[in-house]
Design a protein around this nucleic acid. Sequence first.
RNA 1: GCCCGAGUGGCGGAAUGGUAGACGCAGGGGAUUCAAAAUCCCCCGCCGCAAGGCGUGCCGGUUCGAGUCCGGCCUCGGGUACCA
Length: 848
Amino acid sequence: MSRYAPADVEPKWQAAWADAETFAARRDPSRPKYYVLEMFPYPSGRIHMGHVRNYTMGDVIARYKIATGHSVLHPMGWDAFGMPAENAAMERGGHPKDWTYGNIADMRDQMKPLGLSIDWSREFATCDPEYYGQQQAMFIDFMEKGLVYRKNATVNWDPVDMTVLANEQVIDGKGWRSGEPVERRELTQWFFKISDYSEELLAAIDGLDAWPEKVKLMQRNWIGKSRGIEIPFHRTDGGDPIVCYSTRPDTMRGATFLAISPEHPVSRALAAENPELQAFIEETRKMDTTEAAMEKAEKKGLDTGITVRHPTSPEIELPVWVGNFVLMDYGTGAVFGCPAHDQRDLDFARKYDLQVRSAFHMPGDTAEIADEALVPPKTETVSYIDHFAGIGAATSQEGIDGSIDWFEAKGLGKGQVKYRLRDWGLSRQRYWGCPIPVVHCDTCGVVPEKKENLPVRLPDDVSFDQPGNPLDRHPTWRDVPCPACGRPAKRETDTMDTFVDSSWYFARFTAPDAETPTQAEDAAYWMNVDQYIGGIEHAILHLLYSRFFARAMHICGHLPESAIEPFDALFTQGMVTHEIYVTRDERDRPVYHLPEDIEWHESGARLGASGAPVEVIPSAKMSKSKKNVVDPVNIISSYGADTARWFVLSDSPPERDVEWTASGAEAAYKHLSRVYRVAADIVDAPEAGSGDEDLLRAMHKAIHDITMGIESFGFNAAIAKLYAFANTIAKSKAGRESRAAAMRTLAQLMAPMTPHLSEEIWSMLGGGGLIATAPWPKADPAYLVEDTVTLPIQINGKRRSELTVAKDLDKDAIEALVLQDAAVQRALSGAQPKKLIVVPGRIVNVVV
RNA sequence: GCCCGAGUGGCGGAAUGGUAGACGCAGGGGAUUCAAAAUCCCCCGCCGCAAGGCGUGCCGGUUCGAGUCCGGCCUCGGGUACCA
């Protein structure tokens, strides 16, 4: 008997699929369509287990949908712009373009042996001029529709390298190359008006029925709708009032100070004549731009010396402080501090010896406020001191709502709905991205490039031997005539955020060669993506930007209205994690190492080359920069693609993170070999046997369970059932044709996971045609019902006995039988049960 | 800091509020073999000789019944707007 040899079997069936064009996506009005998409990869150069996991999951769905009669679109492309290509050029020389396309070729070569059901004819990379040219055309369309504008925004500035740094390039507030503290600097940048869609993007979340609740919740919180009020505080020196935004005006009685952002116009104006304030503001600029850094930084402030009047108690004067924790981007850049009922404000008040005054009592609480603020939950009833806001007692939420109305009615403020969501800054001061297709003309201002001149191509003759954006110093690329007046002008040298590239690639896959961004019939047929699969790390930004983009594309006529929510169903897979290996350089900065560079000694991990000790950090997200990426190519070459596919699906539930370990792959191979061996045995098995009916039952149960498993993304549970069914067939003594039928069904049920092995078994047992296009088996309900059922008997909630009864036996009859049970009689010792709970078909609980 | 998750045997994990530990790995024992590989069979949460008791991160609650629901924590992970 021959052994299962994936090295021979897998290429054979891949060739058969290619010959039959099994996976070519075709518009076929006679069949329902199905568009399955996995988030496309960044071409780092090597595929890793996370990719294998992601694309295998999508492949299971795609192959299952083909078998259930759908016309399937399952494409692949490359998210090819981004920083790593420029970093590689800086570190190793060479050109980002060569590095990127070389990586794409390598990764495609590594991916193809997996036998994915991908229509490779639709492949593209976002750095192809044919792709980014269409993106530039859409940018111009967006400009015309008023969806794009410019404003000043803050970036991380490395004062030594004289360059803009990404947040990732700032480590502990210092530039990753220079090691010097970064500063914040303002630049004029391009923005998409995503905030115009705050309400719509929020409201439409309710319609995303097949998205995970957690993702919807994260998006809702990110958009962050709040009802609040803008209240002017009048300055005692007669200057313009300072307007504060508050979502808690019910705490107004407790207001004891104002805090304004260092970037607030009042701060700037006062700083001009106040060197101490000037220095304080300078100090706050020496921080990176991330929200996390700002929120975690020590809360600091400086008294401006000016005061304002309390809106409802004008006799009280409140000091105005500049606080490093006040964000200029949210609300009005000014807040009132209420230390009694807000922990951050209380900490601040204690630190700078500011007053604390209560606005309400907590129920039953009369204690003085010490170091803990009294923050009532929104559903709790509070009583207001001085019957503030005309409300004696109310739930906290009613108090908030009532006080907003009260302030408005008195003309003391203006109710406002605000959103946390900020406009999308898309400018990047970098080379390897999609050029923003505009020209700056002294006469005409900002002028879009003419569409017939698109794409605005990136120049190839650039160098990366000095920091900064090479487009800025390019000798000829930058200087162009104005598209409007023809006079000498300068091209925009900012490129687009790579999130722009990934915000519409799913639409481009429907017509990758179209002369316009999309093609109407193709978009209408294929959109929406029926099932989108990707990492939870994209829960907010990528998915929210894509939802915005689909709306913007619709407005510009590039997508039908039905496609403004582009992803019908979303599945967020867990990440594949792996240990990371770190040493420190002379400045104590972390240096990451590849797993293959590590040697394991009794004393711990050491660097293979130098023998230096290595710090091992467990379970971190696999990423290029951390170099903790596992190479699946070795597994594929020694065990075959089906083993790798089977293993990544069986090891862990798809939505959960999985720590990569090498063990299990051997076991997966053993099992697949066993299935092959059992199938081969059946060919020569005796014609007649026993237990055919039992095998038939097991088969229909398997069809039912595994179909459910695939439909619900329970791949690991489905695989457990496939193990069980394979064991049943192996042990069955049924006749040859019964076993062959069961084995052919097993092959079909396994085909989405292990397509090559399944084709092999299918042909061996006379399945006919390709299993890839064979119709999915159907479970006959007649075989799924059992005649009897075993009920566990609990006594006081603990399992003590069991009872096997006819499936449809009624409750009274079951109760009678339960009371005769020996364990039950022992527990009752002659008494009546306090309670007898019978859940037919499930369980019995006797309470004694 | 804030938002969102996750936590179950030695390990990965299973379980519509209803028998906790399916299925697999590792481990132990046996069969086959001259021997090995491969394969096949059996055992396998913890404590206990047993009867039995204890067990799903911790504390409390709801329920006839909680891994599952609610409240409060702890730890780990993701996101935090220029990593993709």
